[in-house]
Amino acid sequence: MNTAKQYRSGLVENFDLYAPKLVDKEEYFAAGHRACQGCGEALAIRLMCKALGRDTVIVNATGCMEVISTMYPTTAWKLPWMHVAFPNAAAVASGVEAGLKVLRRKGKIKDRYVKTVGIGGDGGTVDIGLQALSGAMERGHDMLYVCFDNEAYMNTGIQRSGATPFGASTTTAPPGKASRGNRTWKKNMPEMMVAHNIPYVATACHSYPIDFMNKVKKARSIKGPSYIHCLSVCPTGWRCDSKSCIKMGRLAVETGAFPLYEVENGKYRLSADMPETLRPLEDYIKLQGRFRHLTPDEIGYFQERVKLEYKKLMTKVKSSR
């Protein structure tokens, strides 16, 4: 089995084999939430919270995670949490950060460092929330923003977003006689964040939990704005098995469709989990119903473009050394 082989070939060593046991046992994102079976995003949030710890305030954009976690009068959150609207998580987080800072300065709250973390889906981040995020990052607020990218508007029924990959079938980019699914290339959001000259940008995926959590911890420790773009598999929207959620994220990384890297003060570094050589893209997309309609030519184009983007990334990594 591929997965098992992967563990044997190093991943588990990277995990330190029993690393899971060293993880914070507290569940800050409690069970009973209404996410779909096998939801990668719920998993990613659960892991993120463990990495952040209790001295954290979460500001959530409208989306799946908000809807499934806070059905009044209950909440899955054990961290202070706030939701206002779809496009403004970063702006609300700006206000929270500023508010906590000034209250602490004035001695109105305990003098203790509490991290403000904005979270949103890809729609709430790369599309409708982009302006607020850009403003918040540019202003230099001491906050982390994490985009949980499941590559479409899943909450409203799988409509395409700016983060939907090439070729994917969505309910607003369906394949038909005159169209072949989503025609555009996935918006390079991490690169846009790098362009804001913030101290820390990283990509991550729940399938590499220790890597993801380490990145969250690093971002948490940075005084200033930081951004993590976390690929979060949505079995419902990607049209794959719930159980294959983790595998799907791993394949996205191994094929280079979603490379893992960090940019610290402008310097690019590939994450340790990236393989020496990329697997064929087809290994990844053939398992997902959203790519089922693609012709060999289209897959060929997709593959070439992935290679090109990866090459561009590697150039930056090499020039950062």
């Binding site: 009973g32 009068p73 054990k78």
Partner: peptide, 8 residues
């Protein structure tokens, strides 16, 4: 009530 989603 933090974590009260466990009611469900």
């Amino acid at each position: 009530r933090p974590g009260s989603s466990r009611d469900y």
